[in-house]
């Protein structure tokens, strides 16, 4: 920083500052303002149109006594934990395998990444057909002679979330793999050589040397995956529409339906505020660790 005094500070990089004004305004007015507005109106009894008639915590009390909301939260937890674990494990394994200097690496990478180019709606419809008992996987395998084969997750309330996780993993793992592969390629060859000289087995090298070195990649991937989990909506809508019954409902769907179908904005705002809270619980400690830590170090 040059020591030119006051004018330099404000007018330094002036064009860059002017260029970022629209984005700053968007962030403050749309994101922050919209968030505040939503939180405030979640304490009102707004129906189809917003109105400032405060009812205290009534919307939240109703929210937490609604079975559908509880189911939604549980489902999000199931989906979140499973897809977090499996997309990391599978993504890393695929990346590690691709990293063995195999032939046709580009082809494999393209194949694995292809599903990510599809939207959740398309993914959901494709998997809805694959898992449909009347003409999907179950039908084909029964046709091959296994008459009693049953694989029907989307019509079974206990299994439906696993069907959705399956489709989600199919769509998203390719991206995780690519991120991991980039991370692996960033590891210096010399480290591998050193490990080999020391006689450390490959799996140990991965587990105790390479993975800790890939921390930044893991953190970035974690944020991307988590954001995808919290906003889970279209996949469910395309695959099951929340069914059977309410067995595959998710919070984002609850928000949408109470705001627009049930014409009860207050209830929808309360639910979305709870979603915001859950994101904040995850993001704030992380941001503190990431950015707060750097300043100290």
């Amino acid at each position: 920083m040059s020591a030119d005094g006051p004018p330099g500070r404000l007018f330094k990089n002036i064009s860059a500052k002017i260029a970022s004004i629209p984005m700053i305004l968007t962030a403050v007015v749309v994101f922050l303002g919209g968030t505040l507005w939503t939180v405030i109106y979640s304490f009102t009894d707004s129906k189809l149109l917003p109105r400032l008639n405060f009812v205290g915590l009534a919307q939240y009390e109703r929210l937490w006594s609604t079975p559908r909301w509880i189911v939604s939260i549980e489902n999000l937890a199931i989906y979140g934990i499973l897809s977090l674990i499996f997309s990391f494990v599978i993504g890393f394994l695929l990346a590690a395998l691709l990293d063995q200097q195999i032939r046709f690496e580009n082809t494999f990478r393209t194949i694995f990444l292809y599903p990510f180019a599809l939207s959740f709606i398309v993914t959901g419809l494709v998997w809805q057909w694959i898992l449909n008992p009347d003409f999907g996987l179950q039908h084909i395998i029964r046709g091959l002679g296994w008459e009693n084969f049953t694989f029907n997750p989307l019509y079974d309330a206990r299994l439906v979330m696993f069907g959705i996780v399956l489709a989600g993993l199919w769509q998203g793992t390719g991206l995780i793999m690519c991120l991991m592969l980039a991370g692996l390629r960033g590891i210096d060859e010399d480290i591998w050589k050193a490990a080999r000289v020391e006689g450390i087995p490959t799996w140990k090298t991965y587990l105790f040397i390479v993975i800790p070195m890939m921390r930044p990649v893991f953190v970035t991937t974690l944020v991307i995956v988590m954001a995808g989990i919290v906003k889970l909506y279209d996949l469910v809508v395309a695959m099951t529409a929340g069914g059977p019954g309410t067995a595959s409902e998710v919070p984002a769907k609850y928000v949408y339906e109470f705001m627009f179908r049930a014409q009860n904005l207050g209830q929808g705002f309360a639910a979305s505020t709870m979603m915001l809270l859950s994101v904040a619980v995850v993001v704030i400690p992380w941001a503190y660790l990431e950015f707060g830590g750097k300043r100290r170090g």
Partner: peptide, 19 residues
């Protein structure tokens, strides 16, 4: 009844039929 009540009723019924 209001659309709000109808939505809750629909949720209850679809839950009842599926489970």
């Amino acid at each position: 009844i209001s659309p709000d009540t109808t939505t809750q009723l629909n949720d209850l019924m679809s839950e009842f039929f599926a489970e």
